[in-house]
Amino acid sequence: MASTEEHTTSSKIAPEAQVQRNNHSRGGAKFSPVDLSLRLLVFASSLTAVLLMVTSKQTEFISVPGIPIQVPNTAKFNYTPAFVYFVVALSVAGLHSIVSILGSLVRKQSHSNKLLFHYILMDLLMVGIVVSATGTAGGIAYTGLKGNSHAGWGKICNVYDKFCRYVGISLALSLFASVLLVVLVMLSTYTLYRRST
């Protein structure tokens, strides 16, 4: 009775439908192709974001008031705690997505709903981590882009243009990853919801 409804969720693609039907009748928790590709995209975008952030180091010669010659000055991501948190959070998210893909490939037989529930919980945790990291790094990056005259914080993106470009692209990718993670949780919840009614 319950297994007939599970068929409807994952019979979109014709050649794989037969395989999936067999898996579901045994209670296997294989992901749907949409779910799997979303997880792959999360992995790719978080990996790219981490790599861009790590390689964003830039050295520029800056004239300091009081010293006649220009002094080399470096902008690195680990000078700002917010960017360090960003790198750690996105590494965790990338690791989680690759582990969840592998877990779904390895594990063939289990209780489907229970496994889906655990995936939802872990994805929810990842949403919280990645979204807060994006917000944190975004707040700092915006201040670096525009500066803040009230607090006397000067803008730095007119000096470190390459650094800012890398950070910007990295932020865009992490925003993309967080939207994907939210969609992933929505899809899994919807699957669970359809099985419950």
């Binding site: 979204v131 944190t136 201040t143």
Partner: peptide, 15 residues
Amino acid sequence: MAALMFSANGAAAAV
């Protein structure tokens, strides 16, 4: 809402 709240908290906490 949870996602928006977390990002806003992150931004405010960083600044």
